[in-house]
Amino acid sequence: MFPARSSSIAWPLFGYFFFFSSLTGSMAPYISMYYKSLDLSGSEIGRIMALLTLSTIVVPHFWGWLTTRLGLPKLTLQIATGCTLLAVLPFYFAQGYETFWVLTLLLALSYSALVPLADSFAIRSIKGLGIPYTRIRAGGSLGYIFAVTLTGFIIAKVGVNAIVPMMILAIIIAFATTFLLKEKPIPLEMDKQVGSFWSLFKIKEVRFFLLLSFLSYMAHAPFNVFMALHLSNAGYSGDEIGLLISFGVVMEIVLFLFFGNLLKRYSVVYVVALCFGLGIARWLLVGWYVDSLWVVLLTQLTHCVTFALFHMVSIDQVNRLFPEKYAAQGQAMYSSLAVGLGGGLGMVIAGYIWELMGGPTAFTFAAIISAIALVTLIAHQRR
């Protein structure tokens, strides 16, 4: 999978992505079920979960600044992972909305930085080695599948109380894995950034890319918060939910491993249009026909397009739109406005819709956002 000359760098990176994504796989799809078992309402669950993404508006800028100041990306990643571990531990003893809100806020201050820190660390580490980023990223997808499937089976056996211990175990191993990573110090005199956040934001193409990314993450918000609960309400067992969610990520891995050069062959406009067009169908079908196993399987099959393919486009666009001296600012801008603001706002709105009008309407909201994104893309091309 990796050439012998680069295996000492690639495999530890692959392992780190595997285990920190295992934390996400044991938490993101199932924690709403755990909160529901503690009698939290849909809007309360939405507000708690939104903290993890809304914090991305600010948090990546701090960790990017810290990386620049220290000049040691591995050390920064270790600190963020260790803080995440410390923040997860109290979840085992917590009760009540207010307590979980505070704990999630503390968790968000480090957890929401792990993806941008790991992405930038990986891209910098494999530079010149001939290893596609998507092959490293596949480790995260495999870890997510492993955790989603295993946690689903354990929930089916012992109940939702197994969710938090699974989260703790995953982040402990992820933290241990950071000690195997190869540090590549940043020459501080070369890392000084020129310009500012707003100077980048003034570029028209950058603004349009960020707008589409914002809409994409907003459209995925109901899925990220309520998919497991939506399936549970439809009568699916814990192990069935785990397998169904894992199926979507398996398709994601196939895309990452075998279609990494897809963007070189097709216009990015058509690829993004496909992502949003399939998104409309996916959210409507899963919202209103979740009782049909075949419909759920079909919608999970499209996960490799609506999420994974769009993620590939995003990484490619960040690398293309931002020169190397602006790389840290570009990654922070993307994380802030797309992942943070788009995903977080979508979670809050989805939580209220879920509570007031139910699951099908919450996923219809996602379809509407996808439609708005597609219309925006088409209108932009006709100018």
Rank of each mutant, 00 (worst) to 15 (best):
L377D: 00
L345Y: 02
F17A: 07
D239Y: 15
G260A: 10
L52Q: 13
W11P: 04
V88P: 10
V206Y: 02
P185K: 11
R382L: 15
E205S: 13
K184C: 00
Q317K: 15
E205K: 15
W294Q: 04
E240P: 01
C304K: 07
F17W: 14
R265T: 05
L180T: 10
L309V: 11
S196D: 01
A371L: 15
M357I: 02
I253Q: 02
V158L: 08
L142N: 05
I79M: 13
L301C: 11
S232M: 11
F208L: 12
A108L: 09
L231G: 07
A371I: 13
G238P: 04
V295P: 12
F146H: 06
F20G: 01
M166V: 13
G140P: 07
I131K: 07
P132L: 11
S232W: 07
T306G: 04
L211I: 14
S21F: 13
K74E: 00
S22K: 11
V318D: 00
A373L: 08
V88W: 09
N224K: 06
L23A: 03
S37G: 05
L38V: 04
R265W: 05
L40S: 08
A162W: 14
E324N: 14
F307H: 12
E189I: 14
E183M: 05
P73H: 06
I9V: 15
S26C: 12
A80C: 09
G143M: 12
A332G: 15
L54D: 02
A147I: 12
T104L: 09
L106Y: 06
T299L: 09
M333C: 08
T24Y: 03
L77N: 04
G64V: 07
L210H: 09
I315V: 15
I368W: 11
R382T: 14
I145Y: 08
S237N: 03
G351T: 14
K182G: 00
I203C: 01
H230K: 04
V225N: 09
T177I: 15
L129K: 15
I353D: 01
F153Q: 06
W65A: 12
G46D: 03
N319H: 07
K204A: 03
W11T: 11
I378A: 09
F214E: 05
A118Q: 09
P222H: 03
E240K: 08
L278A: 06
G96M: 09
R69K: 15
R282S: 01
L356S: 11
L142M: 14
C83D: 00
P132E: 02
G287T: 11
K202V: 08
Y133R: 10
L103N: 10
I57K: 02
